[in-house]
């Protein structure tokens, strides 16, 4: 099973839920935790440990000046504005290139070949017993986060239980993380901002046909705005985490709340059981 912890809005507690859920379940089974928030991965803050890394590469064109006639076909083809053809030279912007390789195909002179360029890395660690942490990291200035997410997830393929910490937002990076997942938990907060982005994110999961539920974090008791929406969309509320100073202190110190607050571990295990019971989850 691959379970994605997502939110839409940033800062609602995705990482808190992913980390504590994984650590709770690891008492009994092997877990792969995948940090797919490749622009600012932070799951590792809860699980400091030594890492091994492998690079994530992409294809970029290399131009053979002795063959290039500056005909402009490659620049015309490039949908990302990565190639500009001047009278006397080519200007190439590697960080705008999406590595599609189309320029190589359209070049009538065979002046373009593809070479590899690193855009990030995947870090592997075994921070505790039965937990393997796989972290996707995209380099600064880069834009191809879906590519880094895809490579990160490829390393987890085949494992019986994968928990993914998704990137915030509702665009390509979330779609890449959600696609092919077995279930999704949206972590939200009972604010108009939390609700607004939850609506958008839930819409993505709906389009992709992924069984989903909701965790309300920082609840002050009155979660009506979230509950109303969840009811209208048949999204079960699977867990409510109170707005609590002790929880905030633990999380902000990089500690797991299941180890600081009694009863939390049981509640995260219950969350997982409820996810498994969602209609459509194997």
């Amino acid at each position: 099973m691959r379970l994605v912890i997502a939110s839409g809005k940033g800062g609602t507690g995705k990482t808190l839920v992913a980390a504590n859920l994984a650590a709770s379940l690891a008492a009994e089974r092997e877990i792969v935790l995948a940090d797919c928030d490749v622009e600012e991965p932070n799951l590792h803050l809860f699980f400091p440990s030594e890492e091994e890394t492998l690079p994530v590469m992409t294809d970029v064109p290399e131009f053979d000046n002795s063959r290039c006639t500056k005909c402009g076909k490659c620049g015309e083809f490039c949908q990302y504005g990565a190639i500009v053809v001047l009278k006397d030279r080519i200007m190439f912007f590697p960080e705008m290139c999406h590595g599609c390789g189309g320029c190589e195909i359209v070049c009538p002179e065979g002046a373009i070949s593809l070479k590899k360029r690193p855009i990030g890395h995947v870090a592997f660690s075994a921070p505790r017993e039965r937990i393997i942490l796989v972290t996707g990291v995209m380099n600064e200035r880069e834009v191809m986060s879906p590519h880094v997410i895809r490579e990160t997830l490829a390393y987890t393929a085949g494992h019986p239980l994968i928990i993914c910490d998704a990137p915030p937002g509702t665009a390509c990076p979330l779609v890449e993380t959600l696609e092919g997942a077995d279930a999704c938990v949206f972590v939200t907060e009972p604010t108009p901002f939390g609700l607004h982005d939850l609506k958008l994110a839930a819409g993505v999961a709906e389009v992709l046909g992924i069984p989903s539920g909701v965790v309300i974090n920082r609840s002050m008791g009155d979660d009506e705005i979230i509950r109303e929406f969840c009811q209208s969309r048949n999204l079960p509320v699977l867990m409510v985490i109170p707005f609590d100073r002790e929880i905030a202190v633990a999380a902000n110190s990089g500690d797991l709340v299941i180890e600081k607050i009694q009863g939390m571990k049981t509640r995260f295990i219950e969350l997982f059981e409820k996810v498994r019971a969602l209609p459509g989850v194997e």
Binding site: G81, A82, I83, V84, V85
Partner: peptide
């Protein structure tokens, strides 16, 4: 367009 507008606009002006 979502991105890459600057270089493509420049290409238009240059062409």
């Amino acid at each position: 367009a979502a991105g890459g507008v600057g270089p493509r606009a420049a290409q238009t002006v240059i062409d």
